[in-house]
Design a protein around this nucleic acid. Structure first.
Length: 123
DNA sequence: TAAATGACAGGCC
DNA sequence: AGGCCTGCCATTT
């Protein structure tokens, strides 16, 4: 199996707790390859185990999502994140105006730290 | 076997 | 501040 790296990526993505998001670069680093952010996305696109790997929790370094390459739909990914209590920045509050909907990495960026147990409970 | 591609990231203009 | 270009590295054909 030459998918050792893919396996690591799946494991990391699956370890992302609810309400949190991780960047491709972060996942890559946790997977053991700090410079393979592109690979992470490629792996998720190749074999996104449906229902097993929450690829919607993986976002860009800017907090943006993959444009047009979502698993079920560009809006679907964002909706899922909102469903997990992930805050979104609409660039409407009190900050630099104008800024496509981005995930609030300031609050929901995963620390790469697990919750003690090695498996999270998905309701 | 080698070359091209690709769900990114960071730096530069 | 925003947009463009290049670099990195594993997988695929």
């Amino acid at each position: 199996m030459t998918e050792g790296f893919s396996q690591a990526v799946y494991r990391v993505v699956m370890a992302i707790p609810q309400g949190y998001v991780a960047t491709y670069g972060m996942v890559a680093q946790l997977a053991g390859r700090p410079r393979t952010a592109r690979m992470v996305g490629g792996v998720l696109h190749r074999n996104p185990q449906p229902g097993v790997i929450p690829c919607h929790r993986v976002v860009f370094r800017d907090g943006s999502l993959a444009p047009g390459f979502a698993f079920g739909g560009p809006g679907e990914q964002q909706a899922l994140l909102e469903q997990e209590c992930v805050r979104f920045i609409a660039g409407d509050d009190s900050n630099a105006g104008a800024a496509g909907m981005r995930v609030d990495l300031q609050q929901c960026l995963w620390d790469g730290r697990m919750n003690g147990s090695e498996e999270q409970h998905i309701e």
